[in-house]
């Protein structure tokens, strides 16, 4: 833990807004607003937050999939493609972006959605996904690669010969994870991969993700609003609120000493064994990202609100190594 970890993905003041034009009026939704983050090699990074706080948009941006109406307003996204060389991937051509996908960074969708082509057998889907990246591979070689991985992951042997609708939601989710890890990408990005599955299947899926990560020693970025999943799998967690990262730290730090009032609410809403008290939730609703409150966006819901919170957004302060939080209540006077 003491050694400095190598950064594999970094964003620099990233702003990605949805810009919608409706009957001449422009509506700007600040879904990713000034996000600085560094994600390291060989870790599982969790992103948590309420629905509508910009988690999925941040994932899209990290995945370098910024297509209208989502627009990159400012900032940069760097992938560390050849160790010491950082590449600003927002400047790549569409073909270069396409080649990075699956091979360098892969995407795990929510498998319960119809993400697999309903008229193709899974082996055809495998053929399309792999054949688009490994040129010069024969169909047999592709299937052999797929079969080998299916054996390792303990999926049913005949799975390549079935259609997506013949699989359960959990199995579909496993297939998408298998597909995402097949070309041994350095980064895997999961968008709510455990949502919409029952808890038993969730456990299986989480174990599969962990196993893959241990084998490949790569990085997984996982978005879910389920704090239980984060506690189980993540090494570090970033808490998102209204398009910003408001607190970030190791899983122990976030669950042990949450500092941001929003994080505290999230943690306190989790049930604990033997504790029969009512769990309290965060009062109020998340703000509209088209019309953010001035100052700290959390101030209307914060029980400890101070005058400065209404006027200025706090910068990060670092109460501990690897732990940062953007709140006026913490580390007084140290805000830049």
């Amino acid at each position: 833990m003491a050694e400095k970890k190598r950064t594999i993905l970094r964003t620099d003041k990233l702003k990605a807004f949805y810009i919608l034009e409706m009957q001449g009026t422009q509506k700007i939704i600040k879904a990713v607003n000034d996000v600085d983050m560094e994600i390291y090699e060989n870790e599982i990074y969790g992103i948590a937050g309420e629905s509508g706080c910009g988690k999925t948009t941040l994932l899209k941006a990290l995945f370098n999939d910024i297509v209208p109406p989502l627009r990159l307003v400012s900032g940069k996204i760097y992938y560390c493609i050849n160790w010491d060389k950082e590449v600003d991937v927002t400047t790549l051509s569409p073909e270069e972006k396409r080649q990075l996908r699956m091979e360098y960074i892969s995407y795990i969708p929510q498998g319960s959605m119809s993400v697999l082509n309903p008229v193709l057998k899974l082996k055809e889907t495998y053929k399309d996904f792999i054949g688009s990246h490994l040129s010069g591979q024969s169909q047999e070689e592709i299937f052999e690669l797929a079969r080998k991985q299916i054996r390792v992951l303990g999926l049913p042997k005949n799975i390549l010969d079935v259609y997506p609708h013949q699989l359960s939601g959990g199995m579909r989710q496993r297939v998408t994870i298998a597909l995402a890890s097949l070309l041994k990408p350095r980064i895997m990005i999961g968008d709510e991969p455990t949502t919409a599955l029952d808890v038993v299947v969730q456990r299986g899926v989480i174990q599969m993700l962990k196993m893959i990560q241990e084998n490949l020693k790569n990085t997984i970025i996982l978005v879910t609003h389920d704090m239980g999943v984060h506690a189980n799998i993540a090494d570090r967690i970033g808490i998102m609120y209204a398009g910003k990262i408001v607190e970030e730290g190791s899983t122990e730090q976030i669950f042990g000493q949450p500092l941001h009032p929003y994080t505290q609410f999230l943690i306190n809403s989790l049930p604990k064994f033997g504790d029969k008290n009512m769990r309290s939730s965060v009062p109020g609703n998340p703000p509209s990202m088209a019309d953010l409150p001035a100052g700290c966006p959390f101030h209307p819901r914060c029980p400890h609100v101070k005058e400065i919170c209404r006027q200025e957004m706090p910068d990060f302060c670092y109460p501990d190594e690897n732990h940062r939080v953007a709140c006026w209540l913490v580390g007084e006077g140290k805000h830049g």
């Binding site: 999939d65 996908r101 995407y107 959605m113 993400v115 399309d128 688009s132 998408t176």
Partner: peptide
Amino acid sequence: SFVQYAKLGGVT
């Protein structure tokens, strides 16, 4: 979503 997913998977 299966078309979106194929795009995210870098399918040609």
